[in-house]
């Protein structure tokens, strides 16, 4: 059951990532447009709904998904350790992909990245410009720093690999794969992860190389 929880919470987060990636590309429409987009997310449905209604719902759903995903991962990790207390002296990997091997520690790094990312660009507390700056200025300030950009790039590449195995694994866990579809599912996982991560990466690189300032 925990694996179904893992798969479903993962899918919820992937759906959010798609929207997040597309939203990021607004940065190319200029400072005002980007800041306005950020403002719009906070006022969806206003004035009929109180400010931040949609955003709060998204945040609650995402937080629940992260907690569920983390719980499932920790419990599978512990189960695996209990199932093999004595390790092999010699063990050779034959079939596993790098992506599948880095799911656990890669997932932990991605989680730490998300915490940093929220402190940096959402709350602005660790942002070079501080939390009073506009979203656009905060973004430019962070990605003008090569060290911050490098951290984003490494984390996003790990996330891409995490998704590459995650999409395949979720398809298996939800019983939607078969011999005929196996290749298609894996190919889709690779293409989808690549496009999504490329969409995310293009923004920091644009700032770093001065295309966005």
């Amino acid at each position: 059951m925990k694996k179904a929880v893992m798969a479903v919470s993962g899918i919820v987060m992937v759906l959010y990532l798609i929207a997040h990636m597309i939203g990021n590309l607004k940065v190319y429409t200029g400072r005002d447009s980007f800041n306005h987009y950020s403002e719009w997310i906070r006022t969806i449905g206003a004035p009929a709904l109180p400010e931040q209604t949609a955003l709060t719902i998204i945040r609650v759903v995402l937080l629940a998904a992260v907690v569920a995903h983390f719980w499932a991962a920790v419990s599978l990790w512990r189960q695996a350790r209990r199932a093999r207390p004595e390790r092999y002296v010699t063990k050779k990997a034959v079939a596993q992909s790098y992506a599948s091997r880095t799911m656990r520690w890669g997932g932990v790094i991605v989680l730490l990245f998300i915490v940093y990312h929220i402190l940096d660009l959402t709350m602005g507390v660790v942002n070079p410009e501080g939390h009073d700056a506009s979203p656009y200025d905060r973004l430019v300030a962070s990605f003008s720093n090569p060290f911050i950009t490098a951290f984003y790039v490494i984390s996003l590449l790990l996330l891409g690999m995490h998704l590459r195995h995650g999409i395949w694994s979720a398809t298996q866990t939800l019983g939607q794969s078969n011999r005929r579809r196996e290749r298609t599912v894996n190919a889709f996982a690779i293409v989808f992860s690549t496009i999504l991560i490329a969409g995310f990466l293009i923004v920091p690189f644009s700032v770093l190389f001065g295309l966005v300032d």
């Binding site: 925990k2 599978l76 695996a80 209990r82 093999r84 079939a95 195995h165 866990t173």
Partner: peptide
């Protein structure tokens, strides 16, 4: 029985 959980690695 105490077996681990499947993470679809394929080994």
């Amino acid at each position: 029985e105490g077996f681990g959980g499947c993470t679809n690695i394929g080994e």
